[in-house]
Design a protein around this nucleic acid. Structure first.
Length: 552
DNA sequence: CAGCGCTACCACACCCC
DNA sequence: GGTGTGGTAGCG
């Protein structure tokens, strides 16, 4: 929404200045066109938005390329043409030397990597070996998360190294598989490299191993994502076949709990000795420019060439030269059309984002963190809100604290003051809801001096199933697959519903009830999420669900 | 006349102890 | 000193 506004505003400003510069001609100049000639499309724009607008108005399969044209500042102009036509003028390498592909936001694309390290700062680093290990790790992850099989033979490996810098581009050539867009690629890459971040964070600080354990135990060791599904593009039926890998989820839960892979090979030093990843994570932004095969950065004469250790060999065709094949394979948004194309997605859920925000802040104490309204466990917040919204009283969460050693979440409640001890609401003292994550129970205490004096603590009640199971099977990120009827049209909202089969919905849970019952959109989403988690489990403890709903 | 999309960083205001 | 915000230099 916000982005749309910004874009619109910018577009209008652009148009205004354009008309100021070039007022409309009063003379109409008709042109003749010969229909039998192949359409020649070759248009240059100073502004990216103008290029995008032209592409929209164009029937042909055209693409945007950014051309560097001034040394020093990274100024670019934007070329719109077809792959065929670009290659025709590009292949001689006498012009168009500094060309970049614009990977359009929302466009289906390949999995790609930009790899680099400074040779001087990393003597002894074996670049080729690091590339091989990375490819191996990525292939395993693709298999584990999406059941996609591939190997180093499916990875176009391009080299742009110098004496100073080891530099590679990897472009995965998966069969009938692509990512929804490059933002999803970035999410996937960050997800599968997560163990390496922890290595960077932990190695150089003087944190003790014990505190490290506490800091990360709930996250790094949390079983990673199980809700993986695919949908298949289908031409005979118009509906994308979709299925969830329910029965496999628990299996994988087991394997995911195994010690995380050793990614220490990914850690390199930059020229000032700071630790970084070998993988550049800055290349997964909207409309990212990605250098073409055989192009060099302006001012340098180091084009991307097929690496010595490349193992991807395109199938030889009579109609297309080998070089052209490599050129086309290196294009990230050049996804081969296929009627069995599967689109992979990797969302970062709201929960995860919140958790990242919370845990990035260095708290005063290593053992507790605290905040207001929303804790890092939105599902539990939601449950607590259910508890304190009864009999027409709209209770809320005033503040929460989390105690690492005890795994205890303490909620200070506002407005709702019902106390089990006195069997009625307190008049001027607030109550607390305590959630014991270790024992999966909750109980109530309060701030009233009398209750406090007798150290009152209510009976313990089991946490509802969705909170417990969520904790166990928490889908930190959602790996789903969209229907792929039209890969170039961004699907309206990658609703997680898309991954559910009819049978899943017909399990006796009134999902509409939950969606309506929670006014807050975010809470509704959390509620929906928990349903999805249920659907991933073969045996659903129905009694528990009903209990929660009745509470509401 | 004319690039784009970020992130890390800084300055500053405000709040609470 | 903690926390939130708004602006920007500079990176990819």
């Amino acid at each position: 929404m916000e982005r749309k506004w910004e874009a619109k505003l910018k577009q209008i400003e652009e148009r205004a200045s354009h008309y100021e510069r070039e007022p409309l001609s009063l003379v109409y100049k008709p042109r003749l066109s010969k229909p039998e000639e192949p359409p020649s499309i070759w248009k240059l724009f100073h502004r990216q938005t103008e290029a995008f607008n032209f592409v929209k108005s164009c029937k042909e399969d055209v693409h945007i390329f950014a051309l560097e044209y001034k040394v020093g500042d990274g100024q670019r102009i934007y070329l719109v043409t077809t792959y065929v036509q670009l290659w025709f003028y590009y292949k001689s390498r006498r012009n168009l030397l500094h060309c970049y592909e614009v990977i359009p936001e929302n466009a289906v694309c390949k999995l790609y990597f930009d790899l680099e390290f400074n040779r001087l700062a990393n003597p002894g680093a074996d670049g080729k070996k690091m590339v091989a290990l990375l490819i191996e790790h990525v292939c395993k992850a693709l298999q584990q998360f999406y059941r996609v099989s591939c190997s180093a033979e499916d990875v176009l490996n391009l080299d742009s190294s110098t004496n100073e810098k080891f530099s590679r581009h990897l472009i995965f050539q998966l069969h009938d598989v692509a990512f929804k867009d490059n933002i999803h690629v970035g999410n996937f890459v960050r997800k599968i490299l997560e163990p390496a971040f922890h290595l960077i964070a932990s190695e150089d600080d003087d944190m003790t191993p014990e505190t490290m354990g506490h800091e990360f135990s709930h996250f790094s060791e949390t079983p990673i994502k199980q809700g993986i599904s695919f949908s298949k593009k289908s031409t005979d039926k118009d509906i994308g076949e979709s299925w969830t890998t329910n029965s496999k989820k628990l299996e994988r839960l087991g394997s995911a709990k195994q010690s995380s892979p050793d990614l220490s090979f990914l850690i390199v030093k930059n020229n000032i000795g700071e630790k970084h990843l070998f993988v550049d994570l800055g290349v997964y932004t909207r409309n990212r420019n990605f250098r073409l095969y055989k192009s060099s950065k302006i001012g340098k004469y180091v084009p991307l060439e097929v690496a010595e250790d490349n193992k991807f060999y395109p199938v030889q065709l009579k109609t297309i030269s080998k070089e052209n094949q490599y050129f086309l394979s290196a294009l990230v948004s050049n996804v081969r059309f296929s009627d069995t194309l599967r689109i992979l997605t990797c969302d970062i859920s709201q929960n995860k984002q919140k958790r990242v925000e919370y845990f990035n802040h260095t708290s005063t104490s290593v053992e507790t963190i605290e905040g207001f309204q929303c804790s890092p466990y939105p599902e539990i917040d939601q449950f607590v809100l259910l508890l304190v919204n009864k009999n027409g009283i709209k209770g809320g969460i005033r503040r929460w604290s989390y105690f690492f050693p005890e795994e205890l979440l303490v909620y200070d409640i506002c407005k709702y003051r019902w106390c089990e001890n006195i069997g009625r609401a307190h008049k001027s003292n607030n109550i607390m809801i305590l959630v014991d994550l270790k024992n999966e129970v909750w109980y109530q205490k309060c701030h009233d001096p009398i209750c406090k004096a007798e150290n009152f603590k209510s009976d313990c009640f089991p946490l509802p199933a969705e909170v417990r199971l969520l904790f166990l099977l928490k889908e930190e990120e959602e790996f789903t697959a969209d229907e792929t009827r039209n890969p170039h049209e961004p699907s309206s909202s990658a609703s997680s519903k898309g991954t559910l089969s009819d049978a899943d919905w017909d399990n006796g849970i009134d999902d509409a009830y939950i969606l309506e019952a929670t006014e807050d959109a975010e809470l509704a989403e959390a509620a929906e999420d928990s349903l999805l988690s249920y659907n991933g489990i073969d045996e659903i403890p129905d009694e528990l669900i009903i209990e929660v709903l009745e509470e509401y």
